[in-house]
Amino acid sequence: MPTQLEKAKTFRALHERPGAFIIPNPWDAGTARLLAAMGFEALTTTSLGLANSLGSATVSLGQILDNCRAIAEATDLPVNADLENCGAHEPKTAAQAIRLAAEAGAVGGSIEDATGERDNPIYDFNLAVERVQAAVEAARTLPFPFMLTARAENLLHGRTDLDDTIRRLQAFEAVGADVLYAPGLHDLATIRTVISAVNKPFNLVMGFADPTLTVPQLAAAGVKRISVGGAMERHALAAFLNAAREMKDGGAFTYVRELAPVKEVREAFAKGAAKS
């Protein structure tokens, strides 16, 4: 098993090489091992996928960290942690989540400017920047190069002012964020507009983008990292619901024709267990 320092160096190198790379989102140790067996080079957690798997609308920071630890221990791949708003409003308190994510085995993690509150969904600009700066400072105290991702969440909360989103990303970059992220971008032209306004590696999530876009197109637009958020877990959940409806409403079981091969799954799990 590589050391955390080795994983961190590998993860940073992925952001520095030419082109774009896919960083899929497992939601537990089993899905992490399946993705590793398929040859993906890094993984990132999904708070939405975790919440769905737990049958909950939300997850706590403690649950997020426990899930991160399970995924980080499941394979020898670098793991990035989706930390939501880092569990606190106050900058220095929120920044402690970066240290905790590192202790859970992550070599990267995100802080977002969404408050988690319906009536006030986005932090004021200055507070959002202070939170990112505190997270950057926490990351720099770690004994390895932790990749800090700063997220501007406007587009997911009905705030369609693209100029404000760009302004936030530029400010996050200025205070030291390693990766920038604005979930909710959909079309290639808008993606290019945002990326051309910043200089740090950009993460695009395909859970909201035009699904016909390809890796070569996104790479040409300047995207460095491509994640999928909770999309794979939701796709799996859709298959589960379809199977359940077929049994409940039709008394049929044709879904068994499309099961994951037991041999492939067991081999992936055995390979992952041997490395952990």
Score class of each variant (00 low, 15 high):
residue 240 F to R: 13
residue 14 L to D: 09
residue 150 A to E: 02
residue 3 T to N: 10
residue 138 A to R: 05
residue 127 L to N: 02
residue 105 G to Q: 06
residue 140 R to G: 12
residue 229 G to M: 00
residue 7 K to M: 12
residue 86 C to Y: 03
residue 106 A to V: 03
residue 155 L to W: 01
residue 126 N to Y: 05
residue 63 Q to W: 02
residue 10 T to M: 13
residue 86 C to L: 07
residue 151 R to H: 03
residue 20 A to G: 08
residue 80 N to G: 10
residue 154 N to V: 03
residue 113 D to E: 09
residue 106 A to M: 06
residue 71 I to G: 01
residue 13 A to F: 09
residue 201 P to Y: 02
residue 174 A to G: 07
residue 163 D to N: 11
residue 215 V to K: 08
residue 162 L to G: 05
residue 147 M to D: 13
residue 102 A to R: 00
residue 186 H to Q: 12
residue 109 G to S: 11
residue 137 E to L: 09
residue 161 D to P: 07
residue 242 N to I: 13
residue 189 A to R: 12
residue 161 D to I: 04
residue 240 F to W: 14
residue 40 F to T: 12
residue 77 L to C: 08
residue 262 V to M: 12
residue 20 A to R: 00
residue 107 V to Y: 01
residue 62 G to N: 14
residue 45 T to S: 01
residue 71 I to N: 00
residue 184 G to S: 06
residue 73 E to S: 13
residue 203 N to A: 09
residue 87 G to Q: 08
residue 158 G to N: 07
residue 137 E to S: 11
residue 276 S to L: 12
residue 54 L to N: 11
residue 265 V to W: 00
residue 161 D to S: 08
residue 224 K to V: 09
residue 53 S to E: 12
residue 149 T to E: 11
residue 193 T to P: 10
residue 132 V to D: 00
residue 235 H to D: 14
residue 164 D to Y: 11
residue 182 A to N: 05
residue 41 E to N: 07
residue 264 E to N: 15
residue 154 N to H: 11
residue 38 M to E: 15
residue 6 E to I: 04
residue 255 Y to S: 11
residue 6 E to P: 07
